[in-house]
């Protein structure tokens, strides 16, 4: 266990945390502004990945693939908002869960119908396919580093959008008092569609970026969706800052746990048993973290409301 290996794993944890943030930010925005729990957010992640893989496969350009992921996911998001989601704002959470569960079924089987059951592959662009040399003698894949940078830039852009622009003011006002801003002449229906499409685009971007590391397949979105829920529970619903901190915590705990828990157990147990016990505990480490936060602060680290 060398120092550079530890740093490399910290970077891996950051990378998965930042991708989780892109998912969790959309979910938490949609919940904060519209009061909606959207299980189909994982489907939008999948739509983004499939759009990217299909377009990049056709044109050979990764950048065009990314653009297609953003556009495709935003479009799919706007479409389901207009057709389905908009009828759910006034409903209770049970109806929202069921309707968005139905959307998952439709999206997943629809994608399987169009693309088949076999995974697609999205190639990392040539320019980023090799490793880069970081200080302290660390060799790290350039693509993963690029994802971290892109994720951080998008996160900064999102904070700027929410905190400094007119749209952001409306979004925050919508969180606080939707009747009042409707009375002030803001088209609340359009604002909701924009917020939903924005969240969808973030999910689609994450799907496309991660799709180049893992395979692009039906059902890829739901495990990430559930991790994003863990992030939101830890960070607090409706808080973008909470989503950011929560996502990094979850990403780091998950990645570092998988590497270090088996090693840690080897100090006190025989190696094969230690590997088994350590990796079993690593699988559930983030949920233990969530439970601990729940005991300490039931509304999450940055949650304002119960």
């Amino acid at each position: 266990m060398t120092f550079s290996l530890i740093l490399e794993q910290v970077l891996n944890g950051l990378q998965s945390g930042i991708m989780l943030f892109l998912m969790a930010a959309g979910l938490t925005l949609i919940f904060g502004v519209m009061g909606l729990i959207n299980l189909a957010h994982g489907s939008l992640y999948m739509v983004g990945a499939f759009c990217a893989a299909a377009v990049a496969g056709l044109t050979g350009s990764f950048v065009l693939g990314l653009a297609a992921a953003l556009a495709g996911a935003a479009l799919a998001g706007a479409l389901i908002e207009l057709v389905v989601i908009r009828r759910l704002y006034a409903r209770d959470h049970l109806d929202q869960v069921l309707a968005t569960f139905a959307l998952i079924l439709i999206f997943s089987e629809g994608t399987r119908w169009v693309f088949g059951s076999f995974p697609l592959y999205l190639d990392v662009p040539d320019a980023l396919s090799g490793p880069v040399a970081l200080p302290l003698g660390i060799q790290y894949p350039a693509y993963r580093l690029a994802i971290i940078v892109v994720g951080l830039v998008v996160a900064a852009g999102l904070f700027w959008l929410i905190g400094r622009t007119r749209l952001g003011i409306r979004i925050r006002a919508g969180e606080n008092d939707r009747e009042m801003i409707a009375a002030l002449g803001v088209d609340i229906g359009r604002l909701y569609t924009i917020v939903f499409a924005l969240g969808a685009a973030l999910a689609g971007l994450a799907g496309a970026l991660v799709g180049a590391i893992q395979s692009v397949q039906v059902g890829m979105g739901e495990p990430v969706l559930i991790l994003a829920f863990v992030v939101i529970v830890i960070g607090g619903i409706g808080s973008i800052k909470g989503a950011f901190i929560g996502a990094l915590l979850v990403g780091l705990t998950d990645t570092l746990g998988r590497i270090f828990l088996p090693e840690l157990f080897k100090l006190v147990m025989e190696p094969s048993a230690a590997t088994q016990a350590g990796s079993a505990l690593a699988q559930i480490a983030i949920y233990v973290l969530m439970a601990a936060v729940l005991v300490w602060r039931p509304t999450g680290l940055f949650g304002a409301r119960a």
Binding site: H93, I226, F229, V233, Q283, Y287, P298, A306
Partner: peptide, 29 residues
């Protein structure tokens, strides 16, 4: 643990605990 919360928190937490058991069963060689 989860009844300390309500509403969407409760939905998300029960879903997450479900996933915890799923992964635990997978790793229980």
């Amino acid at each position: 643990l989860s009844l300390r919360t309500s509403g969407v928190y409760f939905i998300m937490i029960t879903l997450a605990f479900g996933q915890m058991f799923y992964y635990f069963a997978i790793s229980w060689a």
